[in-house]
């Protein structure tokens, strides 16, 4: 990149499109910290790979406890992603388009789970929906439903921490695309619902991919809120991250093998859906 830059005549470069230049010319001082950032993100995962006990790997990865946790993780994370979409997408539209007063406060409230340590989120859920929490007691007395210690509690915990990613992603997309298409649709006589279906939803699609991937990934990795709110029991609430934590107490090789499962799923998700979704959004 740089030699090509230098060989180009000055005048020509000055006249060249500014977009072109900003895309190719990375200032030299940025390379070092950028490399360090990459190292910080990638090296620990490589460190994990060095701890793998190859002789025991197949047996450990296919151990019933690991497979149970994997299945539960995939099921609950998918459910949390769907729930986030069903509830979070409408919320994103409201945040981006409505003229409610106090919208700023609402927006901050949506960001709260991103900032809170997940354990705090788990405690908060427990004090609301636990057997002694106000809503939890109501549910138990009225319907005989106990939320904690169920897979539903896992989904709730995952949705709590993951939905903000979807809301923020979609809301950002809506706000950058602006409301002019919707206004045009309205002037052409379309009602709000028709406008939503035919104009707003298509506007959301490019951002949907990346937002869904982020949401699913966050739900898959959820640990703190789940262990605090839902507990930890094989097949019911012990998702892969919880199983890794519990197993690491006694058998580190098995915990590393399970971690590898999680890394592979994460890579698959990124490879299959991630880049395409992100590129679609960038262009």
């Amino acid at each position: 990149m740089q030699p090509a830059d230098r060989s180009a005549p000055r005048t020509q470069r000055r006249r060249g499109a500014p977009v072109e230049r900003s895309r190719t010319g990375v200032p030299a001082p940025l390379w070092m910290p950028a490399a360090m950032a990459l190292a910080l993100l990638v090296l620990p995962v490589l460190g994990l790979l060095t701890r793998i006990e190859l002789s025991r790997l197949p047996e450990l990865v296919t151990a019933p406890a690991a497979l149970d946790a994997l299945e539960l993780s995939l099921r609950t994370s998918l459910a949390a992603t769907v729930l986030s979409l069903l509830l979070g997408a409408p919320l994103a539209v409201v945040l981006a388009r409505s003229r409610l007063r106090g919208l700023r406060v609402l927006r901050a409230a949506v960001l709260l789970p991103l900032v809170l340590p997940p354990v705090v989120g788990g405690l908060a859920l427990l004090y609301l929906l636990g057997r002694t929490g106000p809503l939890g007691r109501l549910l138990e007395d009225a319907f005989g439903v106990t939320v904690p210690y169920t897979s539903a509690a896992v989904v709730l915990a995952q949705t709590f921490v993951a939905m903000p990613f979807l809301v923020v992603g979609l809301e950002g997309a809506l706000r950058t695309s602006g409301a002019r298409y919707e206004r045009v649709a309205a002037t052409l006589g379309a009602g709000p619902w028709l406008t939503f279906r035919r104009v707003t939803v298509p506007l959301l699609v490019p951002a949907l991919g990346s937002s869904l991937v982020l949401t699913f990934a966050r739900a898959l990795g959820e640990f703190g809120a789940t262990i605090t709110f839902a507990g930890s029991l094989r097949g019911t609430t012990r998702t892969l991250p919880l199983a890794i934590y519990t197993t690491a107490q006694s058998d580190v090789d098995a915990a590393v093998a399970m971690s590898l499962l999680l890394v592979v799923i994460a890579l698959l998700v990124i490879a299959l859906v991630g880049p395409k979704a992100v590129e679609g959004r960038g262009d």
């Binding site: 427990l126 636990g130 057997r131 002694t132 904690p148 210690y149 262990i227 839902a230 507990g231 930890s232 029991l233 094989r234 609430t237 012990r238 934590y245 519990t246 107490q249």
Partner: peptide
């Protein structure tokens, strides 16, 4: 047949204290 198996004894105790 426990509803949850915690990773340390204090977590068990806290669930009992909280009435969970």
């Amino acid at each position: 047949s426990p509803v949850s198996e915690e990773s340390n004894v204090k977590a068990v105790l806290n669930k009992v204290i909280a009435g969970e």
